[in-house]
């Protein structure tokens, strides 16, 4: 018991050291701005992939239009900072919350279907969002918006990423998460256990939308310009690749998948056009050798939150739960 506690403590110390260390390296320009931006991109991708995991991994649905939510967050927050001069925090939160609202509304019709049809519908909404943004002059149409304040920095991304992961983890290992996983495992049985399946799905969708919105807001205020063409299905596809690379139903897998794929694309930058050949090849090799992704649905023990007291006696001396 004390061993697992010290492991947990160690884990958090490493996280803290990572954050402070990186920030310091950035401040003293030991890591240059370009690398720092890549690191920020990794954080943003982690948020996107982990939130998509909620739908595709834990809830077991197949949504492939996550970039649409990212776009909404980016645009709404950009309107906040550029047009209404809101403080960044406020714009960020408004972006996330409104995106969650839209996700909820989209979910109402979308969850009337499931499986591949749900995939098509989510993709459809992704396309429609991009199409609308292209046609709204207020947000610059196809040219998009420029002159976003450079509000996103390493600390913002780092804090949001960690917070996102902790929140998602705590939800997944609570009654909410159990309900989602039960729906994935057997929807008819779940419904027969008194679970309002539709409402549970909508909740998950709204939460995923919220975090995708946050990620979009961070992204926009990192690059300082946004346009609709950054949020097409190609972006959604990137997220899917990272998600499945890491493993469905594992938040650690999402972190791994997003980090590896984003990192890989940067490392391969010197290879020019071959970069985009090598990275899918690597994906293929991994899928063929590990069809469930790198981690499958496993989660290392020290990131799984502890059960309340009563469970301690229950859980001692038992084989691994997952």
């Amino acid at each position: 018991m004390s061993k697992s506690r010290s492991k947990r403590l160690g884990f958090w110390l490493v996280i803290l050291a990572l954050g402070v260390g990186m920030e310091a390296l950035g401040q003293f320009e030991i890591i240059d701005g370009y690398v720092m931006q890549v690191i920020e991109l990794i954080g943003i991708n982690i948020i996107l992939v982990a939130s998509l995991n909620l739908i595709n991994g834990f809830l077991g649905e197949f949504a492939i239009g996550h970039a649409g939510f990212m776009a909404l967050g980016a645009y709404i927050s950009a309107i906040g900072t550029v047009k209404f001069h809101l403080p960044f925090v406020v714009a960020l939160l408004v972006g996330g919350l409104l995106t969650a609202g839209v996700a909820y509304l989209i979910g109402i019709p979308a969850f009337k279907t499931f499986g591949d049809y749900l995939a098509v519908i989510t993709l459809g909404f992704n396309m429609i969002i991009v199409n609308l943004l292209n046609n709204i002059e207020y947000v610059g149409g196809p040219r998009g918006m420029v002159g976003l304040p450079k509000s996103t920095n390493f600390l913002w991304v780092f804090a949001t990423t960690i917070l996102t992961l902790v929140i998602l983890r705590n939800l997944v290992y609570s009654n909410y998460g159990r309900v989602w996983i039960a729906i994935r495992e057997n929807v008819i049985a779940a419904e027969m256990m008194g679970i309002n399946v539709n409402r549970a799905k909508l909740k998950a969708f709204a939460i995923a939308g919220f975090f995708a919105g946050l990620a979009g807001a961070l992204w926009g205020h990192m690059l300082q310009y946004i346009n609709p063409s950054s949020f097409t299905y190609l972006k959604s596809t990137d997220m899917l690749v990272m998600l499945y690379l890491g493993g469905l139903g594992s938040l650690t897998g999402s972190v791994l998948g997003a980090t590896l794929m984003t990192g890989l694309l940067e490392v391969l930058r010197d290879f020019g056009v071959w970069r985009m050949v090598i990275s899918p090849l690597i994906l293929l090799i991994i899928m063929l050798t590990r069809p469930l992704g790198l981690l499958g649905n496993r989660e290392p023990r020290f990131v799984v939150p502890k059960e309340p007291k009563a469970a301690e006696e229950v859980s001692h001396n038992v084989p691994a739960a997952r």
């Binding site: 009654n175 159990r178 309900v179 996983i181 039960a182 495992e185 057997n186 679970i195 739960a321």
Partner: peptide, 14 residues
């Protein structure tokens, strides 16, 4: 129709 990939305890908790 159990929730196969969940633990026995979690099946009840659901």
């Amino acid at each position: 129709r159990l929730f196969g990939d969940m633990t026995v305890l979690d099946n009840i908790r659901v």
